[in-house]
Design a protein around this nucleic acid. Structure first.
Lengths: 148, 148
DNA sequence: ATGGGTGCAAAGGTTTTGCACTCCG
DNA sequence: CGGAGTGCAAAACCTTTGCACCCAT
């Protein structure tokens, strides 16, 4: 189970799964598809653990990121967003579709980048360990609205 | 010539190529391959025009971005970076190789993404207008150093 | 005189840090 | 006890805004 895995990862680092930490993890699991910001996570977590402070949320997100439990990314809109890592390998192949009209974030899976990464290594000597691919455009819903 | 094109773009927007603005553009042209941050640009521009203020640099970068003269991107390291647009279409196909050891930013050209973008449109209805692809890893120089 | 442009200082928003305190092993 | 974890407030950080002033047309 996902939470057991999280607990194990924490224990390996001699960190505990405190109530606050658990609340943050619960929020991340419950919103696994939603790309929450730190503020969003703070607000949600407050429902489960009202006394929690924003700094604690940030410190826990930092720790969870360090332990590779969550993934953090930036859209250049001023704040980071966080997503729990589910399948590991899967992670590497899932990209984001960011709608410039409504701001929604969809996903798309593809392993086509493997080809590029091999070419980069062969042609430039740069060893790729990770990537970040985001597509910008108009989502299906917004395109529908424009038509009507 | 590049600067004439810039001047034209500005005039179309009824904006002037002021000395400050020109200094910023000169810096961007001289460092076309360097992915400078706003602060970097400010420091460089000060050499050409010592009285310039940081706010002016930001305002000009904002304007230049609006007019599609420069491209702005975020590496999630806390600050934006800027790059002058040279070949337009070329732009779409050039990606960044970010070294996690030394922080250097290389480039790699590839149009392989066209295939993915067509599949996205076909499979999800999301219309892609732009993308951002960054690779993280270890650059050739740093790999060389580790060996020795 | 009118609108664009500027410098400075102040404000803005997100994230980090310092510090005293608590809790569990 | 000792290290990990916490809440609060203050600080840090990059970026934007307000405002008075300047310059060219």
């Amino acid at each position: 189970m996902l939470k057991e895995w999280v607990r194990n990862q924490l224990e390996k680092d001699s960190s505990r799964l405190t109530p606050q930490r658990e609340a943050v993890v619960d929020v991340l699991i419950a919103n696994a598809d939603d790309h929450l910001s730190a503020e969003d996570i703070f607000i949600h977590t407050k429902k489960l653990y009202p006394e929690i402070g924003l700094a604690t949320v940030y410190r826990n997100l930092e720790l969870l990121e360090k332990l590779n439990i969550i993934h953090r990314f930036d859209y250049g809109d001023g704040h980071s967003r966080y997503e729990i890592r589910l399948g590991d390998d899967d992670e590497h192949y899932h990209h984001h579709l960011i709608c410039q009209k409504c701001g929604s974030i969809g996903e798309f899976k593809s392993d086509l980048l493997d080809t590029i990464e091999k070419r980069i290594a062969a042609e430039t000597g740069f060893e790729v360990t990770d990537h970040c691919l985001r597509f910008f455009g108009i989502c299906a819903q917004c395109r529908e609205k424009v038509k009507s």
